[in-house]
Structure formats: C-alpha cells, structure tokens
Design a binder for these strands. Structure first.
Lengths: 205, 205
DNA sequence: GTCTATACGTCGATAGAC
DNA sequence: GTCTATCGACGTATAGAC
C-alpha cells in the first residue's frame, strides 16, 4: 500500500528515454499522484487523467504504453524513496512497521484504493503489468520481513519457535486485509488487531 | 471468498417476481457460476456473459439491474447453502474454518478472483452494490467469528487474554490476504501462515 | 412480465498527420 | 513528441414486440 517499509526500486532509465522525455514523464507522474491522492482511484480513465494533467490521452499512452502501466508507475512513484517521510524505523518489529505504514496510509485513501485495484487486476489474466507489480511487491516484502524476523528472533524480540517465512506472509496478509476492512468500515479494529498480532509474536506474548 | 464458513442468506423473493421469472433468473445464475468457476473473472462484460449464457445482454440487466449486481448475485449464489459441500465443522477454531475454506477455494480460483474484484470495486465510489456486499460480508463474518472466539475462550481452546473482536478481524484479514498471495504465487506459505496463527491463538501456543 | 433491438456516450488503443 | 481521427467494445437506457 502507499506507505510501505521503504521499498527501494530505483532502476536505470530505459535506453531511448532522453532528457526531455523523462522530464515530461516525471511532470505527468507528479501531477497524476496528486490527483490520485486527492480524489481516489475512481475517474481513473486515461481520458480523465489526461484532462487533469493537461494533455491528450494519446500522450499518456505514448509515455506509459497503457493505462495499467501508468497506474503501476503512479503507485510506485508515490512510494519512491524521498517522497515518503522516511521514518528511520530501526529495530521496529515487522508488525510495528506495518502499523506505521497503516497510519500514514490513512491520509491517502486514494492511493490505497489504487493499490487494491492493481492487486485485483493482477489476479486476472491479461494484465501483465499489474501481475508483475503485485508478485514482485509481495515477494520482496515477504523476503525483507522474513529477514527482519530472523534478526529479531536472534535478538530475543520475537519468539524463536516460529517459521520466519510464515510470519512474514502472515504479517503482510493481515496488514493488507485489515487496511481493506478499515476502508470499508472505520469501526473495524484495524489497530487493535495489528497490536494483537504483534503481541502474539513476542516471546513473552 | 467462494467458500466461507457457511453464510446463510435466504431472503424472501421480492414481490412481483413470478415463477417463470425466478426460474429463468436461476438458470442464468447457474450457468454464470459455471462460467466464472471455469474461466475466471476476465471476459466479465455483460455482453460476454450473455453470449455464454445464451441471451442478449439486455436480458441480464432486466433480471439483475446492472453488471455489478449480477456479479454480486453470482458470487453470493456460488456460496449459497446447498451448493457447498457443507462440512459440519463443529468445534473448529475460527482459523481452522478459514483453512477449510481456503482448501475448497483452491478448486475454484475464478470465484476467488471475482471476490477480489468485488472488494476492490467496493473501495471505490459509485459502486453501491459492491459496497453493500463487501461491508455486509465483513461485518457478518467478523461478528460470527467473534462469537465463536468467545465460546472457545470459555472452553479453554483459545487464549482468554485477547480481544475476540480483534481476533475476528485478524483472522478474516489473514485469510483474505493469504489467499491473494497464494493466487499470485503458489509458493507463498498460505497454509503454514494460517497454521501458525491458529497455534498463536491457543492457550498452550 | 419477459425479452429484443437499438442507440448513446465513454472507454483503451492505435494510425498517421504535423 | 504530441496531436487528431478513428476503431471496436463497453455499460446503460429505452421503446416496443410478444
């Protein structure tokens, strides 16, 4: 979701993307992020976005190839290093990291909507960009959290008798699922449930 | 998701729906369920569904009002009592119920896709049918699981020092989230993570 | 009531002018 | 590199046949 324990994904620019092009592309991206953060993932047509950004819809496909690739780019850019408050969350447990992410995300429900839309698209066939995005995000997130779990098990902050990979998958799933429930119903005990999971994972649980 | 700890939702037929109409509606629904179960939630246009079912797309809107209401009806009917194997899961923990659901769902990924699509639509504005469906499902599921938790806390099968409502939300979230991760990557430790959660919730954890 | 035929406006994508 | 023009498909709405 929009705020995640900072995921770094700075890739070298594709060949054939020259200075002016990438600058323009960046302008479009910045404006599109504002629009999504403010207004959510509705009005998500190529044409509507183009209207807001001030270009024609054909220009968007020129820079991004397809609507789906644009959506992925918007979401990833919104999470880019430098755009997040970048809290130096050292020695936080995996659940604590996700709690902090959830707190930040409450300010930008539109981007959480966008995330949810992309994951749903990824589950269908014929959406390669969304699929690549979603599988990559889950895979990297699980790997990173599992590493953190191992370290903290060694440090005695997390129970040593549980599988780090299972913990990582569980934490990511709980975090995503609770975010969804909370967006649909603000009385859903999102924070309480995450705090509960955090406690269950500690040695003194 | 398609298989849930059996949710009962048999409502009295609306006034004005006569024998032939409801029979025809049921035919359409049955055929649509087959199509979704086989092929997934792609090709989900009104026109494509109508083609498969053997009617015009206008007939579908006649019976269901809109595409979204049709999708909700298909999903809910696929979970209707009688259509599920109906495992009399007595004295199973909430997590065990969700594990059983997940097992059943692996056979019908198309319906899980449909569920995911509906939840994503519910998060956007202008999708009242999906919103009603999703909020209702989460609300009812959490309430039911929380009751079960309370009973099993009294019976000593679940730790007594945790909030039943938080447990319920956590279990639902974990279940949905892990289903998603597994659909995208079959190596995701769905079952291990659910088994872990089950263990963490027990008194002897 | 049940259902078809038809039309409207919007959609994502693409071809080609400039 | 960006536009206009155009395409086929989409969801929805409505008129009217039966």
């Amino acid at each position: 979701m929009p705020a995640e324990p900072s995921e770094n994904a700075e890739a070298p620019r594709a060949r054939g993307a020259y200075a002016k092009g990438i600058a323009r592309r960046q302008e479009i991206l910045d404006r599109a992020i504002e629009v999504f953060a403010e207004r959510g993932a509705d009005r998500t047509s190529l044409r509507a976005i183009a209207r807001e950004v001030g270009v024609t819809h054909a220009a968007l496909t020129h820079y991004f190839g397809s609507l789906e690739e644009l959506l992925v780019a918007v979401y990833e850019e919104s999470n880019a290093p430098g755009r997040q408050p970048e809290p130096p969350t050292e020695d936080a447990t995996p659940v604590e990291m996700m709690i902090e992410s959830a707190r930040i995300n409450r300010a930008v429900p539109g981007l959480v909507q966008l995330y949810s839309t992309l994951v749903a698209a990824a589950l269908e066939e014929g959406h390669p960009a969304a699929r690549t995005f979603a599988t990559g995000r889950f895979s990297r997130l699980r790997d990173r959290l599992a590493d953190t779990v191992r370290q903290q098990q060694a440090g005695g902050r997390i129970r040593a008798d549980i599988d780090p990979d299972a913990v990582a998958a569980l934490v990511v799933a709980a975090s995503d699922g609770l975010q969804t429930q909370w967006l649909l119903d603000e009385t859903a005990p999102q924070h309480e449930a995450l705090a509960l999971l955090d406690r269950l994972l500690r040695p003194t649980g």
